[in-house]
């Protein structure tokens, strides 16, 4: 399946990425060639085949409901770009 420049821009925005205008055509062509590569799957009949999520078909283990984490705010915020009063700062959130 091919994707055009506007399609690539739309998907990029969904992924919160920007693509320079002068690179959009090239990106669209590259992405299209990748999609063409993966489209070879479509010829395969997979009717009734259960998707494989874990190669050993393992199941989820459950954790006891016990508090194991102490406050580590100082440490965990050590790499945060903008913090004030223990809060992560972002441009104003408008609802």
């Amino acid at each position: 399946m091919a994707i055009d420049a506007s399609g690539v821009k739309k998907v990029a925005k969904l992924a919160r990425l920007s693509i320079d205008d002068d690179a959009v055509e090239v990106t669209a062509a590259t992405i299209s060639s990748i999609l063409e590569l993966v489209d070879s799957m479509q010829a395969v009949d997979t009717l009734g085949v259960e998707p494989l999520a874990h190669p050993l078909d393992a199941i989820q283990r459950l954790r006891p409901d016990q508090v194991t984490e102490e406050n580590q705010r100082e440490q965990l915020q050590g790499c945060a770009p903008a913090v004030e009063e223990g809060l992560f700062l972002v441009p104003r959130v408008i609802e």
Binding site: I3, V11, A12, L14, A15, I31, L35, V38, M41, Q42, V44, T46, V49, E50, P51, L52, A53, P55
Partner: peptide, 20 residues
């Protein structure tokens, strides 16, 4: 992102997991 986006999930991700 494209492979997971609306309308393409079955044709791409699910299909790929079946082939897996």
């Amino acid at each position: 992102t494209y492979a997971l986006s609306a309308g393409y999930y079955d044709a791409y991700y699910r299909k790929a997991q079946q082939i897996r």
